[in-house]
């Protein structure tokens, strides 16, 4: 397969997953906001600013919008073209990548992606967004899920598909770590205790944003604690959005691409993913919290980044 094509498959998949993550985070934040109705400016800032992950993004936001309001942030994360991480930007980049590999992906995949892109560009999307943001983000997530179903059902599960899997899982692992970290940045209102009502509601929101609520309650017997949620979202072995599951799937995709046995590595990307995979398999939530949850997530994001770079070095850059 052409290096450029593999590269595009990988990135189209990453961008779609990124758009999905943003939809999920916005959805969940709206729900938290609805749970605590006494809204004022300070509250809005406290609750919505952490969504803007980087300092650069925050700066850009302030250039465009004077005041921090939930509407301004949602608009910035959803539709702002100059924000390269916005849902619209991610969808645009995903579509550009898909356009260059149209002959590799199925027509059904392309049409689903293109339809969603055209919808996001249309006035109808703005109207739906204004009328019911929750409904709007659900619709986006549903459509992105459809894309994955269509991908699995209509594309040959060959090399290109494996690059799509690799892109999806590397981005999703990163996304889950960010959602968890997002809760870390979300301060509790004064007077609220760790483990108190607000804290629990926030952790539940985190679960919901990962579509993990139902799966979590099946094993937690109704308790919501930071440790248990973190353990579930980082270390669960079969929940499809846990970091461990994603890294395992990423590692599998990499080995399918190279054809090398999973107990060995044939390139740097495989070595790094194998190392991260075994770390996740053999660590405990106790040691993660001893190390520091934020530090651990930060380090994980760093390692995912290294895998992505090594993958590009291995497959995308021939001279």
């Amino acid at each position: 397969m052409l290096s450029r094509v593999a590269d595009s498959c990988f990135w189209l998949s990453r961008y779609l997953e990124r758009a999905e993550t943003n939809s999920r985070i916005l959805d969940v934040n709206i729900q938290i906001a609805l749970d605590f109705e006494e809204n004022n400016d300070a509250k809005a800032r406290q609750q919505w600013m952490p969504i803007l992950a980087s300092a650069g993004e925050q700066e850009l936001f302030h250039q465009i919008h004077g005041q921090v309001t939930s509407e301004a942030i949602m608009d910035f994360v959803t539709f702002e073209k100059t924000n390269s991480n916005s849902i619209l930007s991610s969808m645009t980049l995903a579509r550009e990548n898909a356009r260059t590999v149209r002959e590799q992906i199925s027509s059904e995949m392309w049409e689903q992606l293109n339809r969603l892109y055209l919808y996001l560009q249309s006035p109808a999307a703005r109207t739906a967004f204004r009328e019911s943001p929750i409904g709007f983000f659900r619709l986006l997530v549903d459509n992105l899920h459809s894309f994955q179903g269509i991908t699995d059902a209509t594309m040959t599960h060959g090399e290109g598909w494996q690059f799509i899997q690799a892109g999806k899982y590397i981005e999703r692992a990163d996304s889950t770590s960010r959602v968890l970290d997002f809760k870390y940045h979300l301060l509790l209102p004064s007077g609220e205790q760790v483990g108190g009502n607000v804290d629990i509601t926030q952790w539940m929101a985190v679960l919901r944003s990962c579509s993990a609520m139902e799966a979590y309650f099946k094993i937690s017997h109704g308790h919501v604690t930071s440790w248990q949620v973190a353990e579930f979202l980082i270390l669960h072995d079969t929940f499809p959005r846990s970091i461990r599951f994603c890294v395992d799937a990423l590692d599998q995709a990499l080995h399918c691409i190279s054809g090398v046995d999973r107990s060995h590595f044939s390139n740097e990307a495989e070595r790094l993913s194998g190392a991260l995979r075994s770390n996740l398999a053999f660590t405990t939530v106790d040691s993660i919290f001893r190390f520091g949850l934020h530090q651990y997530l930060d380090q994980t994001q760093e390692r995912l980044n290294e895998i992505s770079n090594a993958l590009a070095e291995t497959y995308f850059r021939w001279t």
Partner: peptide, 8 residues
């Protein structure tokens, strides 16, 4: 040649 994931 074309550049592929398996080389040229």
């Amino acid at each position: 040649y074309m550049r592929t994931t398996k080389g040229l």
